[in-house]
């Protein structure tokens, strides 16, 4: 992030989320600051430590009275206007925290929009929780619980997507993929590999595997990779370990997604002693 203008140095580095003052350090996003302060902003495609992606839009927040001219880098807006606009929606995971930001997060209107986004994610794929190994540990499901989602609202698209069970110990079920790119980023940035990518556009977008055959078995993916464990839904699963924890005793059967500090527990599955 670019250095704050000089006149701001006297202002303490705090932002305000729903009336709560929250400190931040230069370079942190709104999401970083919120997570550090224990304030939950719903999200699916964000994971601390990986480059923010800003694609799921669940972390959309409103910044009130945002002075366009003094904060935006977009010269077209700077040139045309310097007036304050009432509020602007931004992705908390990509928006840098800036001193004095007044942010609305947990409001009925924003949560309603987030619920609609979640419903679209559900109907766009084949998310049949009772048949999914990930049920109870699924962040999509947990976010839907958090937002009080009862139905998909829209007609089911029932897409036909390919399952890749070629790998000895990892299965890829594209029916449940929400295109968050967590596996893409984990593979590139943490595992030092380049196993996954998204191909296609719009409704045809899908996860592809970087191997000559396009199959997982021929890729570099190993069970120790973060990319094999980071999937927030049941699209990438480790084989033969799906029911070690019974349904009803899983992470989101016992906890809420809004409990900050839960994230490392969800994603980094602990190796069993008999593995």
């Amino acid at each position: 992030m670019r250095a704050e203008p000089k006149r701001d140095t006297a202002i303490p580095n705090t932002i305000t989320i729903d009336g709560q003052e929250i400190p931040f350090s230069i370079g942190q996003t709104i999401m970083d600051a919120a997570l550090a302060a224990g304030v939950y902003i719903p999200h699916l495609c964000h994971r601390p430590g990986l480059t923010p992606h800003g694609s799921c839009k669940l972390c959309t927040v409103s910044i009130e009275g945002r002075n366009v001219a003094s904060h935006t880098a977009d010269r077209r807006i700077q040139a045309s206007s310097s007036v304050e606009i009432d509020s602007r929606s931004v992705s908390a995971c990509t928006m840098p925290a800036m001193a004095g930001q007044q942010i609305r997060n947990n409001t009925p209107a924003l949560n309603e929009v987030r619920k609609t986004i979640t419903q679209m994610l559900f109907i766009e794929g084949n998310h049949l929780c009772p048949s999914c190994e990930k049920t109870g540990d699924c962040t999509l499901q947990a976010v839907a619980y958090h937002l009080g989602m009862l139905d998909g609202h829209f007609p089911q698209l029932s897409p036909r997507r390919e399952v890749d069970a070629s790998h000895g110990s990892v299965v890829l079920d594209r029916d449940r993929c929400i295109l968050c790119e967590l596996c893409v980023r984990a593979s590139r940035e943490v595992d030092g590999k380049n196993v996954f990518a998204i191909s296609g556009r719009g409704i045809d977008a899908h996860l592809i595997v970087n191997s000559a055959s396009g199959k997982l078995a021929d890729s570099d993916l190993e069970t120790g990779d973060m990319a094999a464990h980071i999937c927030p839904v049941g699209a990438i699963l480790i084989k033969e370990h799906g029911y070690e924890v019974p349904i009803g005793r899983r992470t989101f059967d016992l906890h809420r997604v809004s409990e900050i500090g839960l994230e490392p527990v969800i994603l980094a599955k602990v190796r069993h002693t008999d593995e």
């Binding site: 109907i123 084949n126 049949l128 009772p130 009862l150 998909g152 089911q156 029932s158 036909r160 029916d175």
Partner: peptide, 18 residues
């Protein structure tokens, strides 16, 4: 009242939609 997963999104029987 739509009761249960199948009434709400097709549920297990909807797996045949594949």
């Amino acid at each position: 009242i739509a009761v249960g997963a199948c009434a709400i999104n097709g549920g297990i029987p909807a797996m045949r939609n594949h």
